[in-house]
Simulated assay, not measured.
Amino acid sequence: MDSTWLVLLSLALGLAVGAGFVALLFMAAHRGERAVQVVNPTLPDGIDQVIEALESAGVVVDPSNNVVKASPGALSLGLVWNNTLVHSELVALADRVRRSGEASSADLELARGPFGEASIHLFARAARLGSRYILVVAEDHTEAHRLDDVRRDFIANISHELKTPIGAVGLLAEALAEAANEPEQVKRFANRLTTEAQRLAKITQEIIELSRLQAQDAISKRELLNVDHIVASAIDQNRVMADARKVNLVSGGDKGAEVYGDEPLLIIAVHNLITNAVHYSPDGSRVGVGIRNADGIVEIAVTDQGVGIPEDDLERVFERFFRVDQARSRHTGGTGLGLSIVKHAVQNHGGDIRVWSRPGYGSTFTIRLPEASHAATTTGSTSTKEKQ
């Protein structure tokens, strides 16, 4: 009996010890799982997929503001670096939500990335995501802000540019009325009135042209064009003015190059470059127009022997209403829109324009367009214009 009782007692003690050991193992495992969750936090179901699908910037941060998940948009805007939010403004927005428990939003102007100098404009909104996380979503409004700035500058510039000829027309009309009995004065004022009216009409026409070029459907129909014909037409349009200034217009280069596009638009672009070259060239000098066709690119270069452009102004010459020499441009009747029209016309043809200049030696403006045989056509059919 005693031996049996001892055996049973031993078994009971063994079971108790084993149960305690198992309980310790279970508690250790549970604590290990909690530790793993702290180190590798998991988001609520489906959030991963939502963040990945976001076109805008989306970031999920934990209580320490470590980035748990970021959308491709957030990475491309430079909002996240080394698993942290780059900008203190976004951190402050997340902290505000964490303290108040209420969603919050802000318009922010931030640097692009941790080392970026360019700024971006964001509309950011933050809200709680469960009890642990904060979701920050940002929409990129940089382009909208840029367009607003451009629109304001354009309105200011156009108001300034139109004020001069409109004021002149009014003054000349008054002078005409006062000089009604003086035929010579009437004739002189009438000629000046005609000049100012023509200048006003030119500004208006170029504004309309520039607005059309900035529309998405600026070129509705592309044709196969002969570049020789485009250059010859642009030179002919400037022949009278060049002869009056005794400026020799010459052309040369590769023959037979072809591009797809809008012929009147490309003639305007080359015409504007030649007009500028003649205006800024000394009497008796030469303006050359050359064509080069190589490596799938057709280049039309207009070179003058004029005053040249200072290096600091080279990046601005294609801006609306920008003039290197204000006094000379007004004397020649320039509107400051010609080169901007060239830039937009060329960009609408899938090309670009480059400028080289050296003060005192002249300038070269080069239009670069895709050669027809290398151009990728996106429309179903392209009509062919007969070669000239």
Rank of each mutant, 00 (worst) to 15 (best):
G362T: 04
N293D: 15
T195Y: 08
G78W: 10
F318H: 12
A197Q: 12
S64N: 13
A190W: 09
L135Q: 08
R358C: 03
D153T: 01
Q37S: 05
S88P: 09
V259S: 02
A28M: 06
I353V: 15
E33Y: 11
A127R: 01
E143V: 08
V186S: 12
A372F: 01
D352T: 10
A294E: 15
P183Y: 05
G256S: 06
I155F: 08
V7D: 07
D149V: 06
G338I: 00
S251E: 07
R192T: 09
E223W: 04
S373P: 00
D295P: 03
G253A: 02
L122A: 08
E174F: 00
E174G: 04
R98G: 03
R99K: 11
V247K: 09
L13N: 02
S383D: 06
E174K: 02
E139F: 07
N348Q: 14
G18T: 11
S251W: 01
A180F: 13
L314T: 14
V60L: 08
V298D: 04
A118T: 07
A126N: 05
I235H: 03
Y280V: 12
Q216G: 03
T303G: 10
V270M: 07
S10T: 00
R328L: 10
F154P: 00
F318L: 07
V227T: 04
T195S: 14
K255H: 11
G308C: 15
A127V: 12
V302M: 08
A269H: 02
I158S: 13
L224R: 11
A94V: 07
V227C: 05
D352N: 07
T275A: 10
A94T: 14
V302Y: 08
R192D: 12
P264M: 11
V278N: 04
I267V: 14
S285M: 05
G333I: 14
R368W: 01
L265K: 10
A327D: 11
D228R: 03
A126T: 11
E371N: 11
F115I: 02
S104Y: 06
R99S: 13
L43V: 07
L110N: 00
L193N: 08
S64V: 09
R128M: 09
P41I: 12
D243T: 07
A111N: 09
E109V: 15
V59Q: 12
R354L: 04
Q388P: 06
L224A: 03
T164E: 13
E319T: 08
S56T: 08
T384W: 01
V67Y: 06
K187D: 09
A218P: 02
A327K: 04
Y280P: 05
N248E: 13
R99N: 13
I300R: 00
L162F: 13
K246C: 03
L6Q: 02
A53R: 15
A234S: 05
S159A: 09
V136F: 02
V287L: 06
T378G: 01
V36Y: 05
S105L: 00
D243M: 14
E55F: 08
P359Q: 12
A144Q: 11
V250C: 06
T335G: 03
V346S: 02
V250A: 12
I51Y: 03
V39Y: 02
S233E: 01
G58Y: 04
E386K: 15
A375Q: 01
T382K: 00
F322P: 01
V22T: 02
V36Q: 09
N83F: 13
L337D: 03
S64F: 04
A218C: 11
P165F: 15
